[in-house]
Structure formats: structure tokens, C-alpha cells
Amino acid sequence: MAPNLRHETNITAPTNASRPLRVSITGKTFEGADGVLVHAIEDIAFEAPAGSFTTLIGPSGCGKTTALRIVLGLDRHFEGGVSRPDPDGRIAAVFQEPRLLPWRTVEQNIRLALSAAVEGENLDDLFAIVGLSEMRGRFPTELSLGLARRVALARAFAIRPSLLLLDEPFVSLDEMTATRLRRLLIEVWSARRTTALMVTHNLREAVHLSDRIIFLTERPSTVRGVHVIDQPRNERDAEWREAETRRIADKFSGVL
């Protein structure tokens, strides 16, 4: 039996999640390395329903990571607006790199992300679920990339975010490890139903994880189409994923 992930004191979690994430980026340019202005985003507007898992997908360099950084609040120089599910709630991010502090242990890395009020809380259940119980005292430099990404996922969920952002969280892993981590992500995410927004260029990954896939064009990017997946996640076996991926690839043949 999986330990219960929901926190007793977090009574507001379901109501927090009732507001959708609204993103409307109507223009984003930045100065490239050579000083030339890059028009990255023309118009990306979408709404991610509360508790949904939405994926932005598009060719590399299409500005999807830029869009994610805007939603994260790391990039404030853009036109348009972002309305987050809970303005006071916390946002968690899983980056392309694990971004762990190499000089702190696995457990310290996770605890440091916690707010002062819950800094000392018991993390046994979380460590058990993500399979890191034996690794708590290790330093990230001793971990494989797959394990480091597990820590990054654990850190994201440890703070009980009202919004979870994932930027190609399983890139450069072998397919077996990536699939295992995707299953883990589904398991933890399903217990919490945090509104999640992921960026990837891997359609199979999007098909495995998301409720809705938003297709972006090349730079300057706009939304080319939205695909909604109703299939429950526990019925998305490898065969179904393969068929669905092919269906979508046909439907959006011009995009991918």
C-alpha cells in the first residue's frame, strides 16, 4: 500500500486547485548571443484546467522553455499576462537538469525547499514513494542522473505546490529509466492532482502523461492545435501509447 501523500493540514488543497492556470503571452523578444533581436513568441494563449496535466510540445527552439520560464516568473519581460491557480501558493519546477546543490545531501536538498513552517516535517513517506529511502544521506555527486532526477521530482512534490512546471524532466535518460520515472510521476501526481504544465519535444512522453497536448509552431511560436486525451492513465499501456502517438502524428503532420 502506498503511503498517503496528502498532508493533513493542507485542507485547502482541493479548493486551491479549482482555479485554472491562464496563460496569454502575446509577444516575447530577447537579445540573442550575437546581439540580434530574436522574436521568440508571437502568441501563446491557453488555459490549463485545475488539476489537469497539460503539455506544450513543439520543435526545438520554438520558445516552449521561454514560455515555461515566463509562467515560472523567472522571466518578466514579455507582453501578456499569466494567472496562476493560487497567487499565494507555491510553484514547483523540475528543470532539464536536476539542479541540486552538490554540497548538500539528498535530504538537505529537499528540506531546503520547504518553507520554514514545515522545515522539520517527516519525509519518510515521500522518500519511500520515490524510492530514495536509502539515499537520504548521499550527495548528489554520488547519484546517477536517473536518481538525481528522482530527487528533483521529490523536491517538487515536497513543497505541496499549487502549480507544477516540468521542463523536459526526463531528457537524456535511457528509455527504460525514463519510463520508470514517468510512471512514478503519474503515481505521485495522481495522489495530489496538482495543476501541471510540462514542456517536451517527445510526443510519446506527452501521450503517456498528459490530459491535453498543445502544439506550438516554430519561432515565433503560436498555438497550432490542441489535442485532448480522455483515456485514463492506467489504461495507457505501451500498445495504446504507440497507436495514439501515431494518430496524433497523422493529425498534426504539418507541425511535428
Binding site: 515560472l72 539542479r99 531546503l112 523536491r155
Partner: peptide, 12 residues
Amino acid sequence: RDLTEMAEVYRF
């Protein structure tokens, strides 16, 4: 810079 951003996102 990556760690600085991480610290910002996780509200250090």
C-alpha cells in the same frame, strides 16, 4: 545561474 534560479523558484 541555474542554481540561483532554482533558489528563486523554491523561495530560498
